[in-house]
Design a protein around this nucleic acid. Structure first.
Lengths: 344, 344
DNA sequence: TTAAATTAATTAAACGATTAAATGCTTTTT
DNA sequence: AAAAAGCATTTAATCGTTTAATTAATTTAA
């Protein structure tokens, strides 16, 4: 910048004003400066700018694992929205590890990002403490939580009603005459899992179907555990006519186990997932699931974060999206398969 | 840092030395400083550090589109390697748009990242110019190119031999007695596509199979174009007994088109893909493909970048990985299906 | 005509770290 | 005992911007 100033015969302050446009500069001086800038190929040093201005025009994004098909679309939503608002995105995967997540958040704060979007892997009983630590004392950094409520007073959330959608899945299965629904859940210490489990319970209750703890398995969010659990259930001759899985990945694991046992889907056992990731349409039969609007969640997360960042005193809020059940062949054989290639 | 210095009764330089460990500090002073740091909850300001030290311990990563299943695994490889070397990753999607890619690179340079890993979407005839611009004059920034050679003198590359692997696919089809192979390629202005196309040509030549331009379609790297192309070929009654697709996504598009026309795979038409993304195992029949080691490519890209960054004068090199053909049901009916859930 | 107000550019002080050079003690060497 | 060397810490300059305060020139108002 100093070189540009010398070349253009002005002060560095004037060069700065030309670049930021924060102060009026006469047209001829402006032209001279711009000529020098392109002549010397000058580029602003964002580090120096950030140090002085205390803004980085960057938001930090922490997601559990980008290799899980749910998250790339969320991230895309965030980055699209961010870039059209001239923001940069600093993205990190926590690898489903809470300590890693905390380290990343520390790093983001040390990097002075203007805001943070996080899909935390914090256990639900510690969510509020984590929320407070995350935002910090004083005015605090703006934060938006994805997929779960952390602390409604200090952090905005963008999510769907997991309990309701999960209950709708249970209802759907019950409406098809399936009443022995094997539930493949994840640990209830995580709110995502817990809310879906509650939905299953509510669905059973509404349908006056007795709860049978032998039908409830705690696996994780990955395929392998679901595969093992279903194999085990079959071996132990547990009777069931449906599998309600906590997400599409586990549903696919279940599907594989059933097929290997020669159990027909959906004739013998119906299978449902959750999230509507693309693979749920690729397997045969295609999997009935809940359509979670991943891209829109991401986009809204940024929009909301921007609102918080722009208005100093604005209060956080919770934004819910609709997530309808999509019926497919894994519960209704008569439906025909279709891949929506345009999404891909 | 000043507050910490005052609290501990030392100078800021001493605090800095405690934090960075670059100069010896006596144990008792060190203890005092560390006590003050945790008492005040002090965290280093990475922006200020970066400004002074001219290092950010951050690498920039530019990939075409994180929602395409190929890239999350690459990114994971990069971030895993980077994090274990105490580096941060600043990731961006170019959205397959060259202008966007350039803007991101400018941003990364302005942010003074220590190195860049890029999977460029630059057309192949402009690769060398882009390489020079990317690295810049003088000593220049360290750069590693993924999936293609840019300029062997100034940029290291981590990739596979696309031509060879593509040729191996063609050989595989020919060995199965298929000689009318429909080729679903992408625009040859991109090196990825061009090299695979060359492999197809070499394979035909080796097998003494005449080249028929009616069998070559230029689509893109997405599913929809492939779907349309195959439908069109069938409608025009073009005779073919195999489809060699430029990647797994296009192979899946082709598969859908064939199935809708009642054409049996592989009995009537064999289908092959490229990349071995997870969905290639989910469809029925599973797709024969080339196993590109995505995670390892990413990991090696970082390792190589680190080598370049650490040794000032080290010369760039090209690192090739092996990418064998994986035979599956879409070319060999007798193989049984299996989903490797552990990968997911 | 002079003072006041406006305008356009400059000066210089931050921002919060790092780091080479300087300082004031000890300890060692001669 | 004096000089040299070693050690632990401090001083102060610096990184490249932004920006409040200032200056100098010009215009407007009284």
């Amino acid at each position: 910048m100093k070189d540009v100033a010398v070349d253009a015969g002005v002060s560095v302050a004037t060069v700065s004003n030309v670049i930021t446009g924060k102060q009026y500069v006469s047209p001829d001086v402006k032209d001279k400066v711009e000529a020098s800038i392109s002549k010397l190929g000058y580029q602003v040093n964002l580090i120096a700018r950030g140090l002085k201005s205390k803004r980085t025009d960057t938001v930090g994004v922490v997601l559990p694992d980008i290799t899980k098909m749910f998250f790339p679309n969320v991230l895309k939503g965030i980055t699209d929205a961010a870039h059209s608002a001239q923001y940069k995105v600093n993205f990190l995967s926590s690898d489903f590890d809470f300590d890693t997540e905390r380290q990343f958040v520390d790093y983001l704060k040390a990097s002075y990002v203007d805001g943070i979007i996080i899909d935390t892997v914090c256990p639900k009983d510690k969510l509020e403490d984590w929320a407070k630590e995350l935002v910090g004392e004083g005015t605090g950094i703006s934060v938006v939580s994805l997929e779960q409520i952390m602390d409604t007073d200090i952090i905005s959330s963008v999510l769907i009603d997991y309990e309701k959608s999960s209950m709708n899945i249970t209802r759907h299965l019950l409406s098809l005459g399936r009443s022995r629904i094997l539930y493949l859940g994840a640990s209830n210490e995580f709110s995502h899992a817990y809310n879906r489990y509650k939905g299953y319970m509510s669905g059973l209750e509404e349908g006056n179907v007795p709860y049978d703890e032998n039908l409830v398995f705690c696996v994780d969010f990955a395929s392998m555990g679901a595969y093992d659990a279903v194999k085990d259930a079959v071996k132990r001759k547990i009777r069931f006519d449906a599998v309600q899985a906590v997400n599409d990945q586990t549903a696919i694991g279940a599907l594989k186990a059933l097929m290997e046992q020669g159990i027909r889907v959906p004739e013998d056992v119906a299978v449902t997932g959750f999230d509507n990731i693309f693979p749920s349409t690729l397997v045969t039969p295609q999997i009935t699931t809940v359509d979670v609007p991943k891209y829109r969640l991401g986009k809204m997360a940024f929009t909301e974060l921007k609102r918080l960042m722009d208005d100093e005193g604005s209060t956080p809020c919770s934004i819910y999206f609709d997530a309808p059940v999509i019926e497919r062949q894994s519960t209704r054989k008569e439906l025909k398969a279709d891949w929506d290639l345009s999404l891909w």
